[in-house]
Design a protein around this nucleic acid. Structure first.
Lengths: 229, 229
DNA sequence: GAAAACTGCTAACGTCGTTCGCAGTTTACA
DNA sequence: TGTAAACTGCGAACGACGTTAGCAGTTTTC
């Protein structure tokens, strides 16, 4: 019990509020941030499953067990990786101009981030408290939405939904070109077969992303009576 | 090499096209479907991580290794579980009436399915070929969308995006009431604090789900020039 | 009737996250 | 100044996981 790691006794609070180290003992050979950086590098290069405790430790020249002097679990590491990556979204675009345009820009930056760190998609949907960088991002979205007369909860929902839709696009991209419909007997799916047999002009749909985000945000943040007729 | 399981030599094709068993040998004590059913029961009751090979085997009164006479990997099992669950969506609503209303009904059924089988959310986003039940569902969506004059690819995108949005809602629900913003010093996030301090009327937003799905589908399937002014 | 193709089953392998215990180092406090 | 407390790194191990190998028995094929 006198051998508690890094969290000085009360080990159930989230990693962000826990001090990195105490005041006694030798100066550590590594740091939380160095570990997180190494893990991100591994996940970027070879995918999230490659970022095992052992692999991260090896890339830092130490052993797996040693990491637990800095983190209390692998989940902590994933949380830190996530927050550090989301920190790359800064600096944020200034919240003047049309709020929809600015939000779309935020969404675009998010999509670019997911392209840069595909493992974020696998990590993001774990039930886990969000970190300070995510808080900052959320805070900035609220700033952008300040001129919008919707309720606070509506804005929360809209931001969350936008983030989710961005992740859907990123996932669709990441799944790649291999179509998941391969290997089926199309005679059992007549409308599918008919749709495929139609002359499908390439129609790359120049900016499906923009249209989706715009229609989503206006749908969620514009009172019903001010839209349409 | 003469001990290949169930796939009779060429083991790289998807599980759905592979025969369940050959013609010789004793009649198997179990079946693919019984295994899948047991795995679903476990995942429903105790979550996906509880549905390990060992646990599934134990609940069937056998050992882990025995399952590999029926499946070639755990991924196969997850694929089969997914497809069987999606099969619960049948029978589908008749594709007459307003296509948007019918699609919304399909989305509602999907949401109910995700509530019934929360593990689907963790399983669905793996890169994996889809099964016959998913094909049938997709096919039916295309049938519903037949009166819509959009291109085939636009319909594909719209269906995929609707499915994704439904999963986002289900995930938001499943994450539960515990707010992920707990434990942060709100003075660092002024707009967040301001938004929280505002008198937030309950405003339960009676049907955010419906509004979101509707605005998404109309946004993706209605030509731009026919909307607004 | 013999070979081939299956069956169930036990034991093991390798990898994973994590824990334990030990020896050494630095700080806090008498 | 000295001693106890709190730390440090490290190596070995634990338990659980997915998966494989090998064996003995059973059914079909020819």
């Amino acid at each position: 019990m006198s051998d508690a790691p890094t969290d000085s006794g009360a080990g159930r609070q989230p990693i962000w509020t826990r001090p990195e180290r105490g005041t006694r003992g030798p100066t550590p050979a590594h740091s939380r941030d160095a570990i997180v950086q190494a893990a991100i590098a591994l996940a970027d290069a070879e995918g999230l499953p490659a970022a095992t405790m052992r692999a991260v430790a090896t890339s830092l020249g130490t052993a797996a067990g040693s990491l637990y002097r800095y983190l209390s679990s692998r989940d902590d590491l994933l949380d830190l990786m996530t927050d550090r990556a989301i920190g790359e979204l800064q600096p944020y675009p200034r919240p003047d101009g049309d709020w929809l345009d600015t939000m779309l820009l935020m969404a675009r930056r998010q999509l670019a981030l997911y392209r840069r760190h595909p493992w974020l998609l696998e990590v993001l949907h774990r039930p886990s408290g969000i970190g300070p960088q995510s808080m900052a991002w959320f805070d900035h979205c609220l700033w952008i939405l300040e001129p919008v007369p919707s309720s606070t909860s509506a804005k929360f929902e809209a931001i969350a939904m936008m983030t989710g839709v961005v992740s859907l696009f990123a996932r669709n991209e990441a799944t790649g070109t291999a179509n998941p419909f391969a290997g089926h007997d199309l005679t059992a799916y007549p409308h599918f077969a008919a749709a495929l047999s139609r002359t499908t002009p390439p129609a790359p749909d120049q900016d499906l992303f923009e249209r989706t985000v715009r229609s989503l945000l206006t749908g969620l943040l514009t009172p019903t009576w001010s839209r349409r007729a």
